[in-house]
Amino acid sequence: MLREIFIASNNKGKIEEFRAFFSAKDIAVRSLQDLPEEIDVVEDGETFEANAEKKAVEIGRKFHIAVLADDSGLEVDALNGEPGIYSARYAGEEKNDEANNKKLLQKLAGKDNRTARFVCALAVYDPERGIKTVRGTVEGEIGETAHGTNGFGYDPLFYVTEKDCFMAELNREEKNKVSHRARALHELDAEWQKWSS
């Protein structure tokens, strides 16, 4: 029985979203924050899927455990898909949310088309069963100013069309129903049921 999953992330926001999902399935979550050593997988893939798969496989093989890795970000149509796989470090390697949002607004200044989507690729690796990768997306637009105090990353700028509000205005329960990460997790749900039986 799979009763523990390792999340290949140091991002507190992501880890909490994963923990909320898996707690309902009685699956405990550990992450890179629980390790005594710092693990840094170089994300040099050209797609979200490639980066997620690399993180899951490298860590899974190193520790001989089941690993779930995510690579996610924002694609803005008027910017030809930017920031894309560089979403976390759009404004620099220090991965600063405020700086990233500021750069995004600057690049969109004067543009009428502000349609965008959040994308999440999830790769789950198990030493005995191999790897499975899925994708989840949520469509929206980039606002001209920040709204809301929940969430992280680009959430304050991302207007969720179907909810008629910004991502950072949703509480955790609401976000966990509509976010790109939630949708990718539900894509994996059938696979988890098979692996956990």
Rank of each mutant, 00 (worst) to 15 (best):
K55Y: 08
V57Q: 05
E58Y: 01
I59K: 02
I59A: 05
F63R: 05
A66R: 05
V67L: 00
V67Q: 01
L68Y: 06
L68K: 03
A69C: 04
D70Y: 00
D71F: 02
D71Q: 06
S72F: 01
G73F: 00
L74G: 06
E75R: 10
V76I: 09
V76P: 01
A78T: 04
L79E: 09
L79C: 13
N80D: 10
E82R: 08
E82A: 15
P83C: 04
G84Y: 15
I85V: 15
Y86A: 07
S87F: 00
A88D: 01
A88W: 00
A88V: 03
R89C: 13
A91W: 14
A91E: 14
G92I: 07
G92Q: 04
E93F: 10
E93A: 11
E94F: 11
K95I: 05
K95A: 10
D97Q: 15
D97F: 13
E98N: 14
E98R: 15
N101W: 06
K102D: 15
L105G: 04
Q106Y: 15
K107M: 12
K107D: 15
A109L: 12
A109I: 10
G110K: 12
G110T: 11
D112V: 10
D112T: 13
A116Q: 06
R117Y: 08
F118S: 01
C120K: 00
A123E: 02
A123Y: 02
A123L: 00
V124S: 06
V124W: 07
